[in-house]
């Protein structure tokens, strides 16, 4: 039976159900031992850096792929304080590909800024990526860091740059050694391997309508139009890790551009927190908290809330309790 009418029926328009950009993070930290010992600290540093260094409005969507209780409780605490706008808990680890299926299908924003949960974001990362999305035509994904990625994954971008009259394509060493080294060392490679790879490979730089970009992109952090990513769903990736290049290849094969910024706006942290960020992340946690409006805090104070709920309930009963 129904007593009264749902008040939501009679009222209320919302101003902005979703921001243009949804920042989407994928977390999977099943426990805090072994490989994952510092992963929660890394996640905290990542979220703090998003809060501190994202200059444009955004909603934060976190997909938790069956993490342990410590991580879930941490995410719930962020959600409760409105630092996460959409929180998705999966009871089983779906793997990265199926999690992508869900994330790319569900996020409300026109633009998805995706990242694994071990990425540190620096000032200007999102603005730079969106400028590239809006300057270059037919962009599939933009990664906010220069790297050297496998050529088969960006052949369409190279072909486009070679044929496009307004584009200038140059080949050479455009990434500084230290920036190159920082990323590859973080992947667990040794110094000698990294040096050898740097000296035996090169970068492809496109200049197009005043904007410069390197060719290539990475699936651990990228910014893309939701509509482009949704065209590839479901991705059909079975393995939890290791099949991620299917997304890169699909985007390339469909003729979309895969681009990177020249500046290292983001940094792959891996599973340990570097000493230079350890203090910063703690600061970021404090600085990044979105302050609630005074009126909201007053309304949420237990006494006021109880009083208002009492009035609300009394009015309802006067009309329906008969």
């Amino acid at each position: 039976m129904r007593a009264g009418q749902n008040p939501a029926k009679f009222t209320e328009e919302q101003s902005s159900p979703a921001e243009r950009v949804t920042v989407a993070l994928l977390t999977h930290i099943p426990y805090l031992q072994g490989y994952y010992t510092q992963s929660l600290d890394v996640l905290k540093a990542s979220i703090a850096s998003i809060e501190k260094h994202t200059e444009l409005p955004y909603d934060l969507f976190v997909f938790d792929n069956a993490s342990g209780i410590e991580v879930r409780e941490y995410l719930q605490s962020l959600f409760a304080s409105n630092r996460i706008q959409y929180l998705f808990f999966s009871s089983k680890n779906l793997g990265k590909g199926r999690a992508w299926d869900v994330i790319f299908g569900a996020v409300p924003g026109e633009i998805i800024a995706y990242a694994d949960s071990d990425v540190y974001f620096g000032p200007g990362w999102l603005k730079s990526a969106i400028r590239m999305l809006e300057t270059f035509p037919n962009v599939g994904m933009v990664t906010c860091r220069p790297m050297r990625t496998y050529p088969e994954g960006h052949s369409a971008t190279r072909t486009w740059a070679e044929r496009e009259p307004d584009a200038v394509l140059e080949e050479g060493a455009f990434i500084d050694w230290e920036i190159f080294r920082e990323h590859d060392i973080n992947l667990g490679l040794d110094e000698g391997e990294v040096r050898a790879r740097y000296e035996s490979s090169s970068d492809l730089l496109i200049t197009y309508r005043g904007e410069r970009a390197l060719i290539g992109a990475a699936h651990w952090q990228f910014v893309a139009y939701r509509s482009v990513l949704q065209a590839f769903l479901p991705l059909g990736i079975q393995r939890p890790l290791g099949d991620d290049r299917k997304l890169d290849d699909a985007i390339n094969q469909a003729g979309y551009l895969r681009l990177m910024t020249l500046e290292p706006f983001v940094r792959h942290l891996g599973n340990t927190l570097p000493s230079d960020l350890a203090n910063g992340s703690r600061m970021g946690n404090k600085i990044g908290i979105r302050s609630q409006a005074l009126s909201r805090r007053i309304l949420d104070s237990p006494l006021i809330k109880r009083l208002l709920l009492g009035i609300y309930n009394r009015i309802f009963r006067w009309y329906f309790y008969r």
Binding site: G34, G188, Q238, N271, T272
Partner: peptide, 19 residues
């Protein structure tokens, strides 16, 4: 170096299939 060891999930296959 900030990645130590290899992610245990790498190269494993998920047995999950959506209903």
């Amino acid at each position: 170096m900030t990645r130590i060891g290899m992610n245990p999930a790498r190269n494993r296959v998920s047995d999950y299939r959506p209903a």
